[in-house]
Design a protein around this nucleic acid. Sequence first.
DNA 1: CTCAATTTGTTCGTATGTATG
DNA 2: ACATACATACGAACAAATTGA
Lengths: 250, 250
Amino acid sequence: MKTAHIPGATAIDFSRSAVPRYVQLASLFRRRVEAGEWRVGQQIPTVDELAVECQVARATVRQALDLLEDEKLIARYRAKGTFVTGKPQEQFWCEVASDWSGQLIAPEGVTIEILTRGERRAPAPPDPQIGAMAPFYQHWRRRHWRNGKPYYLGDVYIDERVCARIAPESFETKTSMRILRELPGLEIAAAHQTLTLGSADPALAELLELPLNAPVAHVARSAVDSEGCLVFVGQGIYRGDVVRLDIKLK
Amino acid sequence: MKTAHIPGATAIDFSRSAVPRYVQLASLFRRRVEAGEWRVGQQIPTVDELAVECQVARATVRQALDLLEDEKLIARYRAKGTFVTGKPQEQFWCEVASDWSGQLIAPEGVTIEILTRGERRAPAPPDPQIGAMAPFYQHWRRRHWRNGKPYYLGDVYIDERVCARIAPESFETKTSMRILRELPGLEIAAAHQTLTLGSADPALAELLELPLNAPVAHVARSAVDSEGCLVFVGQGIYRGDVVRLDIKLK
DNA sequence: CTCAATTTGTTCGTATGTATG
DNA sequence: ACATACATACGAACAAATTGA
């Protein structure tokens, strides 16, 4: 029985989060697979070893491994051990750009699913100084897919008067900013987006097929026409593992 | 047993457990205060109304409000109602901007702790096409603090020849990009930064006093002088809850 | 082939926290 | 306030399968 002792390793502190211990453990283990610390095909430490290393009960380790088993990352064999069978997917194919021209470079092979559509729904008002609210908006909630995987969930609110000029099928093929940009006769005087970080709650984890508590990026967007009217408000959430932001500084 | 799904956009899905329901509720309410949906000084809906709206028991709403009360965001008065007393402290005080001039606006009251310093250490090379590596670099690992809380951990590599012209105390007061920018006689021909998302492993959680697996932002920076030499390479990690990226699009 | 060691699987019991009515 | 149900976390014992001596 070799307890792989890392010199100077301090006990893991699970107490800073409301997330259950076994979920935190699962994330830790998932990262080890992702980082190659536990290689595909190899056996991982025994439940007992992990329990000692992480200072938790055996049952808690097992609960964490249950999650990874559901994700097909590991396979467990009685009396033999537990083995890594796959890596979580990891690709940065969705770059949020920092200027208008490439606002959001939606890559090839993207499909957009319309979850709900509502008329005359008002968005949560962003900074009031940005522009004046339109009288009515139409609302879409959409989910973006690529390669059979969902990667973005967003709410779009568009001024009802502008909406009339948009081809309905646009909403199933184009990103929201692209719809606006390609709309003839609509002049966008100012557009803005803000990105912040967060974690996937259970509902979001379900919708984006993410592990619970995985990092996500919240994006809030708005656009104002030449008359100072807020013709577009959008807010959305990207999977953290598909977002990359490149910024040229000169 | 399944929780009832309400068709329509207003349904709030608090899936079964994992994160306690009242914690999720508290986050929701906190966001409403932050977004101004519930304004300071105003009365918020009653416990009964919130329980109906969110489809949870009254006791659960009360538990969530307990958290906000502890944070001094609300005050509750028997038979009168609950009132907003303040906004969550502006947490996003570290804005990674999208142009050079405001590269990283380090706010007031920041102190920088030097963890290690090494001579002639080579950074992990970024994209080689960006510039040619300098012969030697000096390396600092620093941790940035504000209000007694750590929020950034970074590695700085600077061309040894450039280093000689930097006052040593700069490294305890200035962000790396600021040091470069304020260095006379050094012309930066190109600078670049890339931001990606990740989560805190146990070591990082310890250093930034974060919950395990909390979202973080990885930033990789580089700068090239007029001769194409990579005079600066930096990589760092921000706490996710202090990062905000604002992008003006026109 | 038996035996022991190893390792996962299963099932108790107990305690605490969460959520509802 | 109370009773009930469920999820989490721990610890302990035992069962079942594999391996090698």
